[in-house]
Design a binder for these strands. Structure first.
Lengths: 343, 343
DNA sequence: CAAATAAGATGATGGGTTTTGAGGTGTCCT
DNA sequence: AGGACACCTCAAAACCCATCATCTTATTTG
């Protein structure tokens, strides 16, 4: 026996080792491992953690035991009537339902629109409580400050759709909005077939970088490629249908040679309504967000194209970003819908 | 014995090696390998795992011992120079590398293009051997017959990109090609800005339903919305760049008032080359497949839009379809790229 | 506000069962 | 002979499961 000296067979760990490492009794380890009830979630995690560190469990078992405690994710969206955002909320709920109990828990709160204060406050309020927060960023020092603070405190953050400039430790999931704006400009220019006239740029809100970037991209390509079109800036519609409606009516009256409209923000419903009512469907109109109203508008010919980012993709990527390590994230893909390729 | 002095020759591993690696005794290894009872599932897996790592077992033995064997998937693509298909092949390889050993094993074979016989034969040859086959379908009775047979024999089948009509038990992953054709028609019509003239439809190959469907969609919308454009059918280019080049040169000569081209199939390189050489970049050109050559063509303005289906998405969905139960599959999303939204 | 109470979480323990390790025997093959 | 291994036995170890006591924590009540 003594001959070969008992090869250092890494004695595999016992439940007692796990118990010791987790600082609990065998009984508790047993309860956890056999899925008996009567264990507080915290101790459960301690035990599971210890078990993993000791290599007591195989990967599959870890998964079965729900090692990865479901992430607690909070999503902060601007309140208001914007249909895309409502759709996003719906998809969040759907995703929550469809994913099993092991999936992340998603909670969605609607924040007073365009209020940096309210957003900053919401960020702070949910920090600590949530594992991660995905938020539609308003670019404002107050928000940036709150975000940096929350990120530093350990809560993971990711901005969605609209980002926050570069704040360290905060991810972003969204389109390349400058390219989006340029694409919109290209399409309007091309669809206008060389006509001269005015193109209106509907600014959603300059509080959102996404909007500013789209705007910048749009302006740059117009200047570059379509000098025959002059830009007619329109006041911010604040993603509100009624406001957009009024502005569009005014626009149609003031600018007789209007060729196209690009709505940088949401709530295109007001614009389509105005175009429809004034019988100006020939005006080229591109807007954002594939929703029932834009869908209808494209089908009836009032809108010419919808630019969209798939909400499900957005949610997936946001969750990934909040779950895993900070990875390099490529911008989302821009989906372009015309009347013929609506899903 | 004394001859070679027992150097650590890469001797076939012994049960004792497996035992050591798994951290269990010989008795337990014996129990697992000889399917005796009294082994906890967890340790069983440990032993099996160790055995595999040491290459102790043959494939058949592993299977018999109930190890979760990764799916064996074969992908059959048309041979030829079509860049999109080559890209697809690359992505398959990438996917194979990135997925761990537990992921499905993907093998890709290139079948003589447009040969129904060759495809049918390949289907039969791989049936039984593979768990599932994804194939670019040629519509032909011979293929349909082979597919039905193979599907009946238990091998799962899914057609990709181009389908096979309705053969029971065969899934499909691809675009809604009629809608795609209509979208192409809409875009060319809209981009032509009401000009009169001819639009050329480049038929890839009528062997592919995908191509016929795109063609049908394109024709239907042209007739419906753009009567000022007359369709000028072009002979099948068989997805071959050289052939497409010759055809396009002839086309440009024959049809002086050419307004647009829609290439239903692949290998748009020949067409862009002809357009470029003849200085006819103003001709509106839409083709399929985001590849380095189409990318370049769009950037330099020879192509106006690329219609694409994301290869990775395609692969994912095909694998899903071959792995899980036959689910309802929505058509893939059509990606449309202009010069400004290239990824 | 403090005490009382209830509900939950953890530890301790023990009996019964399963799993495992150690070793023996016999076979096959070199 | 001797290695590799199949097959078996037996006892120790590890584990499952139920029960009960102890301790914590939140809630109700006086």
């Amino acid at each position: 026996m003594g001959t070969d000296g008992d090869q250092p067979v890494a004695d595999r760990p016992q439940q007692s080792d796990v118990a010791a490492r987790a600082g609990v009794s065998l009984a508790t380890v047993d309860r956890v491992l056999n899925r008996r009830k009567g264990v507080k979630e915290r101790t459960r995690q301690r035990v599971l953690e210890a078990a993993r560190e000791l290599g007591f469990l195989s990967e599959t078992e870890e998964a079965q035991l729900g090692m990865a405690r479901p992430l607690n994710i909070v999503v902060l969206l601007p309140a208001g009537s914007n249909p895309y955002l409502r759709l996003l909320g719906d998809r969040l709920r759907a995703r929550l339902d469809s994913a099993g109990p092991s999936g992340p828990v998603l909670r969605c709160f609607f924040i007073e629109s365009f209020s940096a204060q309210a957003l900053a406050e919401a960020l702070r309020r949910n920090a600590g409580w949530a594992d991660g927060i995905a938020f539609f960023a308003i670019e404002h020092p107050v928000v940036r400050e709150a975000a940096a603070e929350v990120a530093a405190s350990g809560t993971r953050l990711v901005s969605i759709v609209s980002d926050l400039g570069s704040v360290p430790g905060i991810g972003h999931v969204g389109l390349d909005n400058r390219a989006v704006g340029r694409t919109a400009g290209l399409l309007i220019g091309r669809l206008s077939g060389g006509r001269e006239g005015a193109v209106a740029l509907v600014a959603g809100s300059r509080h959102y970088r996404a909007h500013s970037e789209r705007e910048a991209g749009f302006l740059s390509i117009q200047e570059e490629l379509f000098p025959q079109l002059r830009i007619h800036g329109m006041r911010e519609g604040h993603d509100d249908a009624a406001e957009n409606y009024r502005h569009t009516l005014a626009l149609l009256e003031q600018v007789p040679d209007l060729v196209g409209i690009y709505n940088v923000g949401g709530s295109s419903g007001g614009i389509t309504r105005a175009l429809r009512e004034q019988g100006r469907q020939e005006v080229i109109f591109i807007g954002h967000g594939l929703t029932p109203d834009t869908r209808r508008a494209v089908l009836e010919g009032t809108m010419d194209a919808i630019f969209d980012q798939d909400p499900d993709m957005l949610i997936d990527r946001a969750i990934d970003s909040l779950s895993g390590p900070p990875a390099v994230v490529r911008p989302l893909k821009l989906d372009i819908y015309f009347s013929e390729n609506l899903p």
